[in-house]
Design a protein around this nucleic acid. Structure first.
Lengths: 145, 145
DNA sequence: ATTATATCCCGGTTCTCCACTGGGGTTTGT
DNA sequence: ACAAACCCCAGTGGAGAACCGGGATATAAT
């Protein structure tokens, strides 16, 4: 299971949006990029993809930016990665051995493995990650004292 | 979960070796490549990798070829894919956000997803695949009659 | 209205990896 | 000796990832 740079950037940005979701004033690309040290022109493309997938909404013009389109607990990690990584709905015939019996049993095993991974990514939401981060930050403070 | 061409080729070759594992005369690259329609010079590299991982043994010279190093039910799909795909020993700092709290929780989720996928690939052996293929071939014959 | 501020859209660039090819060299059975 | 196989190293073409840049467009504030 590979975590690509794209997906990580997108998730970091979405976590930032999730943090500020209660006050609903938009957050700009530049700010997110600065906070998370992401190249801003690259992040722009990722946010555009997320917008087309309906995960974020954008406000153009001055004082514009991005906000989550849904509540942080209603956005799963699977949705994010499928939006970003492009869930090529047609994976027909990328391999030539799709029709042989051997190819089919192999592909079925991989399908099952992929489904198992997807199940994990589907059970976690943006909210879950922010909560986990917050509780860990709390722990760091305790050790600091 | 992505099934690369490399892993698929390697598995097809290993399934072929598993088929002929009872009679223990080696099978040549050319034969495997011809049966499964794999570019032979490419398959050569993959088999070399599998040999270095200890999954197959090779016999050089005339009448040489490859045989499974272990019984087909003692080789899991996970071993194969880890051998082929390169168990990249250094994944240290491929991402710069490895030390931030957000980066850590994200990476942990991905770790869990990867583990889930690995568990599936580990429970299947070469034997399992050949048996599944054989039973399905049996089924095809029944429908043919 | 004008301007500053943001997103939007299109393209190019560099880099790495995958799939594949080629040229030899080495081992082994006949 | 000789042919049949594996062995090793090196290169190529295409695709995608990770960027960067130049404008066009929409919007809030003046």
């Amino acid at each position: 299971m590979d975590l690509s740079c794209k997906s990580e950037y997108a998730l970091l940005a979405l976590l930032e949006l999730a943090d500020r979701h209660s006050q609903n004033e938009p957050l700009q690309i530049r700010q997110i990029a600065a906070i998370q040290s992401i190249p801003d022109r690259y992040l722009e493309q990722l946010l555009a993809t997320l917008r087309r997938s309906g995960l974020v909404r954008s406000q153009r013009g001055a004082k514009g930016g991005y906000v989550l389109a849904r509540e942080p607990w209603k956005i799963t990690l699977l949705e994010v990665v499928e939006s970003i990584e492009g869930t090529d709905s047609q994976q027909v015939e990328t391999h030539r051995s799709a029709k042989t019996l051997e190819g089919m049993v192999i592909r079925e095993a991989w399908q099952e493995a992929g489904d198992a991974a997807d199940a994990v990514l589907q059970k976690y939401t943006l909210q879950d990650l922010t909560e986990k981060r917050n509780s860990r930050q709390q722990l760091d403070l305790m050790y600091y004292i």
